[in-house]
Simulated assay, not measured.
Amino acid sequence: MTPGARVAAAITVLDQVLAGMPAEQALLRWSRGSRFAGSGDRARLRDLVFGALRQRDSLAALGGSLDGRGLMIGHARRHDMDIAALFSGEGHSPAPLTQAERDHVAPATLPDDLPDWIRPRWHASLGDQAGQVAALMADRAPVWLRVNPQRVHPDSAVDLLQSEDIPTRRADDLPTALQVTGNERAVARSALYRDGGIELQDLSPQLACAALPLRADDRVLDYCAGGGGKTLALAAREPKARYEAHDALPARMGDLPERAERAGVPVRILRKPEGSYDLVVADVPCSGTGTWRRTPDAKWRLTQDQLVRLTEVQAQILDQVAPMVRPGGHLAYMTCSLLDDENDDQVHGFLSRHPGFALVQDRSWTPIDAGDGFYLAVMARRS
């Protein structure tokens, strides 16, 4: 595909997303209807679409309209591209710019690419960092790997990945975390990935898992396990503990047994947890504001009513798991949110309802100091 044809395809997909279709679904629909497109074309199209959604409002201001065409004109202007060549009307390229599009003058100050209703919460939660974090959310997220030390030493992992032309760098404060600095799409084809030596996992949840209290004889429950990434991270750190995973939608854990076997750690899948645990991890459903670089269309779909319902679900989950923590044990509350509504406020509400728990530590990560936005609170149940 020519650059102009990819821009035309992006316009089509973006119009569908702006009309309410999830981005992944719109990209899949285009791919199924465009068998001529190779893997490279699909990857470049995905980058165009996701990049435009991360910077939706500022690109619309540059392009003159909040639609697929306006976003792609804004994209071309932001990156000083040859607009006449991209919008030539030749072949499969979009039609040439109209006189109004050529004459459009962008405002002196561009929008910050945040939904209007969330901006006050964003600034209240992030304080002086609000603007910097919003700007970082407009860029593509880095790719991080978690090395499984039960399979390979981190130093060897770096060398093995380099031998497959996948360069990495070690995280400063976590030896088992590697950032992929090139050829990211080759990771899933690498021998180290197939053999369970590495897993794709953002740096922030890796740091959160590394901060949890964990001993060899602990019984651990991952209550909202999803794909089981945190279960596997903890098991790689302390393989002698006993790990159990549960999710309200068991289908989300469908790949976990295979991943656990590949990683060389036993994990028991539960439909209904019973008994008491030394550590309960509750990575609850949340707004995902910390992951907007990865799912940028979610930023524009989130509503105030949805946020309120999510906070209600979070409180219910915390109340459900509290009795599962044995006296002297710990409850780890996690979100991939940057908002106080889901983080500090939620923890303070739980502690007021459950005076038998005490806050041991809480920590937030943002794209400034880690990867995705992430929150951790560890609470101990008094003996």
Rank of each mutant, 00 (worst) to 15 (best):
A216W: 06
A315C: 08
D305T: 10
H104V: 12
D305E: 13
F374K: 02
Q179P: 06
Q55C: 10
L232K: 00
V133T: 03
V13C: 08
S352D: 13
R293H: 06
D372L: 05
Q206H: 10
L86Y: 03
S163D: 14
T335R: 00
G20S: 08
G329V: 05
L307A: 11
V147I: 13
G264Q: 03
V152A: 09
A332N: 00
E274Q: 15
G329K: 03
W300E: 05
R268T: 15
R119Y: 09
W292Y: 11
A191I: 09
L318E: 03
D305R: 10
V321P: 00
L307D: 02
T366V: 12
A8R: 01
D67V: 10
D172P: 06
M21P: 04
G227N: 06
D112Q: 14
E90V: 12
K272N: 11
A233F: 03
Q25N: 11
V313S: 08
P115A: 12
Q16L: 11
E274P: 07
Q132G: 08
P257H: 11
A108V: 15
A322T: 14
L27T: 09
E258R: 14
R185G: 05
P3S: 09
A9H: 08
D165K: 13
P205C: 10
V13R: 03
G63E: 07
R353C: 08
C286S: 03
G229Q: 01
W144G: 01
W122P: 09
A26P: 02
Q201L: 05
D113Q: 07
C336V: 10
D113Y: 06
E184K: 07
A5N: 08
G63K: 04
